[in-house]
Amino acid sequence: MAGHKTIEEIEEEIVEEFSLFDSWDEKYEYIIDLGKKLPDLEDRYKLDENKVKGCQSTVWLTAEYRDGLVYFKADSNSVIVKGLISMLIRALSGHEPDEILGARLGFLERIGMMTHLAQTRSNGLLAMVRQMKNFSLAYKIKKHEYGRDEGKSN
């Protein structure tokens, strides 16, 4: 992951990439392509407890905490949703809990995703963001409680 870049810088990159597309056909083609490229989640993670509620399709999301940074893995049976998750992972994975918690993710609005998706679907997208932030908050609390060294070994 782009460890040296901030979330905002990555968001900026995504916005720039999307500005190259003339039509939503192209945007969807790109998102679908991202969805296809995101590795499938191993079956052992596809548990009910990892399901994100609020999505019409099934979304599994899991996180891990290594060396003070949060890493996400996710999957969906909808390839478009998987493409959207791929963008979220690109922006958020490999950052510190605080940075993830503070991320405003304005890129979703700027690439037109929030207005283009029907309300129910953008709710699902927000549910994913919320779940990613929940993981980060949990790691942050853990780090605070057990100290830095403990946090590294999750």
């Binding site: 019409q56 909808s78 478009i80 029907a118």
Partner: peptide, 21 residues
Amino acid sequence: KTHPQDLGILLDNRGIAVRTG
């Protein structure tokens, strides 16, 4: 190998309203 939601989104992008779910 396609999810109804994906079909619904892509059809909507062509102005076609269907129901999925």
